[in-house]
Amino acid sequence: MKHLHTLLAASALSLLSAGHALAEKVSITDITGREVEVETPVKRVILGEGRQVFFTAVLETEDPFARVVGWRDDLKEADPDSYAAYVAKFPKAAEIPSFGGFKEGTFDIEQAVSLKPDVMILNLEAKAATDEAGYEEKLAKVGIPIVYVDFREDPFKNTPKSMQIMGQLYGKEARAAEFNAFFTAQLAKVTDVIAAHPEVARPLTFVERAGGYSEDCCMSFGNANFGEMVELAGGSNMATPFIPGTFGTVNAEQIIASNPDVVIVTGGSWEAYVPGGDWVGVAPGADTEVARKKLAALMQRPGFTGVKAVSTGDVHAIWHQFYNNPYSFVAVQQIAKWLHPDLFADLDPEATFKELHSRFLPVDYRPGYWVSLK
Rank of each mutant, 00 (worst) to 15 (best):
T266N: 01
G235D: 02
L4T: 12
G100H: 08
D79P: 02
E77Y: 12
H197N: 15
V371C: 02
D261L: 06
M163C: 08
K127T: 04
P326F: 04
Q168W: 00
N123L: 10
P91K: 11
L22I: 11
G268T: 04
K89R: 15
G143K: 05
Q321V: 08
N324E: 11
Q334F: 00
E153V: 09
S11F: 15
Y369F: 15
I31F: 07
M229T: 03
M1R: 13
L8H: 13
N324I: 05
H320W: 02
P155F: 01
S358F: 02
S269K: 06
V310N: 09
P64V: 03
Q321C: 09
E125Q: 12
G268W: 01
V36P: 04
P302A: 13
S162N: 08
F179S: 02
T29N: 10
E95M: 11
H197D: 13
M120T: 06
P349Q: 05
E125F: 09
G134D: 07
V26E: 04
V36G: 04
E253H: 08
T246R: 13
V330D: 02
I243D: 02
F329G: 01
L124D: 10
I243H: 05
E60V: 14
H340V: 02
L232C: 07
S269A: 12
Q333M: 03
E62K: 13
M163T: 07
P117Q: 08
Q164T: 15
E153K: 11
Y327H: 12
P326V: 07
D346L: 07
Q333S: 02
F183W: 11
Y86K: 00
N251I: 04
E77C: 08
V58E: 01
L8A: 15
E355M: 06
V45C: 06
A112N: 04
K76G: 04
G281W: 06
E136Q: 14
Y86R: 04
A57C: 10
F183P: 00
F90L: 10
A18V: 14
A185V: 01
I46D: 00
Q52G: 10
H20Y: 12
S17W: 15
G212A: 04
V190T: 08
E355Y: 00
A257P: 08
I96T: 13
M166S: 08
Y365R: 00
G101A: 14
N259D: 14
T352Y: 00
S328N: 15
E289T: 04
W338K: 00
P367D: 15
W71H: 12
F179R: 02
E37F: 05
V193Q: 00
